[in-house]
């Protein structure tokens, strides 16, 4: 192969498969890679050792590796305005980089910004605004008789209509950190990162079953639009509202074209949908179980 490449090689790298999607992360620093190696220790390598997406964590200028190190997020797909993070938040930078590749580059599955849990081969999807508690609910349900399929993205296969798991590290924010730490004291957590652009962040390693069974897709059976901080309530959601909300919750709906339209209208036509308000996690879990039992 041709030589004479200027610039240093990628210093540290890590590869992983999350559900059906392979990633590699290259970094100018060791610490984010070490954190990924620890937290993703039980995950497999990318299929055929060829990742779907590459993420790069790099210093804007060579000396910024050492002086006030700031982590720039790059990769196959980038947003020009993505601001750097301090090195102490390098793990967050890696996770954001992987999410960005999915949001901008995923073309195989209709990507829904939703959490998903499975029971008896059927999947519950939960989507809503940031702070609606979909990550927290998915994490808690994942330890109470459900299999966690993912807290951030649900992948709908346009050919089969099945949802594929994407059980990356669960990203807990602010008050949710304490809620989950108390509810699942024996779980494995990443480092607590304070005062990130998204507030305090701590990553939770999904339960062993979620990782072991991450290649099993499931048939979507119910979609919920949770809203945290209100008295318990629930209402059915009209198909057209579900349609609009799901297009808004998808970063690649437009890019997929007709297969995306077919996948989305199929979900809307076949899935019961409910908006639920809840004051606390326990109340939400009771609502979920009741709705699920009534299916």
């Amino acid at each position: 192969m041709t030589m004479m490449v200027a610039g240093p090689a990628v210093r540290h790298s890590f590869a992983v498969r999350i559900g059906p999607v392979g990633f590699r992360v290259g970094s100018d620093w060791r610490t984010p890679i070490a954190a990924l190696e620890t937290l993703y220790a039980d995950y497999p390598a990318p299929a055929d050792d060829v990742p779907d997406f590459s993420v790069r964590l790099f210093a804007r200028r060579p000396w910024r590796r050492f002086v006030r190190p700031a982590v720039m997020i790059g990769g196959d797909y980038v947003l020009p305005e993505a601001a750097p993070l301090p090195l102490a938040q390098g793990l967050l930078a890696a996770e954001m980089g992987m999410n960005l590749q999915m949001a901008l580059g995923q073309r195989r599955y209709l990507l829904l910004h939703a959490s998903a849990v499975e029971r008896d081969g059927r999947a519950l999807l939960m989507t809503g605004m940031s702070g609606a508690g979909k990550s927290t609910l998915a994490a808690l349900l994942g330890r109470r008789g459900w299999r966690l399929m993912g807290d951030e993205f649900a992948l709908i296969d346009p050919e089969t209509g099945l949802v594929h798991a994407f059980p990356r590290l669960v990203s807990l924010k602010n008050a949710a950190i304490g809620v989950v730490e108390r509810a699942i004291p024996d779980a494995r957590f990443g480092p607590l990162m304070r005062a990130t652009p998204k507030g305090d962040i701590r990553h939770l390693v999904p339960a062993a079953e979620a990782i072991a069974r991450m290649e099993e897709p499931a048939r979507p059976a119910l979609i919920l639009f949770p809203r945290y901080g209100f008295e318990p309530a629930e209402r059915p959601v009209a198909p057209s509202e579900v349609f609009v909300r799901l297009t808004q919750a998808s970063t690649n709906y437009t890019a997929l074209g007709e297969p995306g339209f077919a996948a989305l209208t199929r979900l809307v036509e076949t899935l019961p949908a409910r908006a639920i308000d809840y004051p606390d996690a326990e109340s939400a879990i009771a609502q979920v179980e009741r709705l699920w039992a009534a299916l």
């Binding site: 198909p239 057209s240 297009t247 709906y253 339209f261 077919a262 209208t265 809307v268």
Partner: peptide, 22 residues
């Protein structure tokens, strides 16, 4: 045009443009 009636609304997928109209 691919047309799917949802309720009072109909989703139209326009093949030539790739645009969805509700």
């Amino acid at each position: 045009i691919v047309s799917v009636a949802l309720d009072d609304f109909t989703a139209l997928y326009h093949r030539a443009s790739g645009i969805t109209h509700l």
